[in-house]
């Protein structure tokens, strides 16, 4: 079991993490680099004369190769961390008599994306560089609490056969949003709103694909190493 956990988590995590980073370098990182032009003042969108106009276009990702190698590396580490949680879940589910298959792995992945990216984004959307938010530690606490409560809600729906889950699961899913994420009472954004909405939509899209790949890879390796 221990070897099964280690191999599934490491191989699936690194593979999904590298693929996720490539998708991000294609779709998300250029928007981060473009936002940095507004953060540093090289480009100004909200000019003092009241006009809101600026050029569109991101710097080339080929300008800073080392920076993107770090991104690929950290993406692999982060997805390996996610993979350890997912595979620990596989082990618990197997102990409880549930079967892990590649198709179920895809659903595990979708639930991971919902818990880690989509649900927290409802209270605290992914932010471009230059966005000024509330203090980072309370936001991290809210983010992690939202992830954990969403996971509890989703786990109940997936594995708890009792009918009371249709009351308790929505409570777990809604509580973080009823409490609400820490926010400032002022807008500070310097980047165009189009850039921010592009960024949020792409972060979510890439997260869905990356998590589905993680679930699929982890389940495939898990079932293979079970047979061995």
């Amino acid at each position: 079991m221990l070897r099964q956990i280690l191999t599934s988590a490491v191989f699936a995590g690194v593979a999904a993490g590298v693929l996720a980073a490539l998708l991000q370098l294609w779709l998300v990182v250029p928007l981060i680099m473009e936002a940095e032009l507004f953060e540093s003042g090289q480009r100004v969108h909200f000019a003092t004369d009241g006009s809101t106009q600026s050029d569109r276009g991101a710097p080339s990702v080929w300008d800073e190769p080392l920076r993107h190698i770090y991104t690929i590396g950290f993406s692999a580490v982060t997805f390996t961390a996610y993979a350890f949680f997912m595979v620990a879940g596989f082990a618990l589910a197997t102990r409880a008599g549930h079967e892990i298959t590649a198709r179920r792995g895809v659903v595990w992945g979708l639930c991971g994306a919902i818990a880690v990216v989509i649900a927290p984004a409802v209270g605290m959307p992914p932010e471009l560089p230059g966005a000024i938010g509330a203090e980072v530690v309370p936001r991290q606490v809210w983010y992690l609490s939202c992830v954990v409560l969403t996971l509890i809600g989703l786990t109940q729906i997936a594995f708890d056969g009792r009918s009371r889950v249709w009351i308790t699961a929505p409570i777990f899913l809604l509580v973080p949003h009823l409490i609400g994420a820490p926010h400032l009472d002022t807008y500070f954004g310097v980047a165009p709103s189009e850039l921010a909405s592009d960024f949020v939509a792409r972060v979510m899209g890439v997260a869905m694909i990356s998590w589905v790949l993680l679930g699929l890879f982890a389940a495939l390796i898990w079932t293979r190493s079970e047979e061995a």
Binding site: A21, Q24, V28, V29, I32, R67, H68, Y70, T71, F74, S75, T78, V117, P120, A121, M124, P125, P126, E127, L128, P129, G133, V136, R139, Q140, Y143, V203, V206, A207
Partner: peptide
């Protein structure tokens, strides 16, 4: 940095 923004962690 870029990974944290792209993964929607509070950065």
């Amino acid at each position: 940095h870029d990974m944290r923004h792209a993964m929607s962690f509070p950065c």
